[in-house]
Amino acid sequence: MKGRYAAAAQPRRLATGSLLAVALFSMVLPAGAGKADRAEFDRLHAEAEQARKKADSIGGQWRDTAKFLKQAKAAADAGELDKAMKLARRAKDEGELGYRQASSQKGNVQIPSYLK
């Protein structure tokens, strides 16, 4: 019984907590952000582009990475920086994951055990 109450209460506490956090964040963000965001985006976009190229250099690029980079740029140009950052981060993740995937198999391709 007590557990149920605790379980029911917890999300509310969490919700209050995150609400507070969001509130704090939204108070803090606009102050230091604004102009820095575009620069931050450009930096992230450049990193993502580099990650994509690195993956591509060993045949490990994923299908949508270049598309995300393009969309990110377009969003940034349209002033939608949150969306732009999200897309660029995704492209960077993909570049890094694709590189790791391909490099981990270079000279180490796993033939299924049932085919040996």
Binding site: E94, A102, V109, Q110
Partner: peptide, 22 residues
């Protein structure tokens, strides 16, 4: 060519062999 065939690729992480052998 053989390496290509058995290399996991893409976000879904499949090799050609994953679908077309077992």
């Amino acid at each position: 060519g053989k390496d290509f065939y058995f290399t996991r690729r893409g976000q879904l992480n499949f090799s050609c062999a994953h679908c077309h052998f077992k």
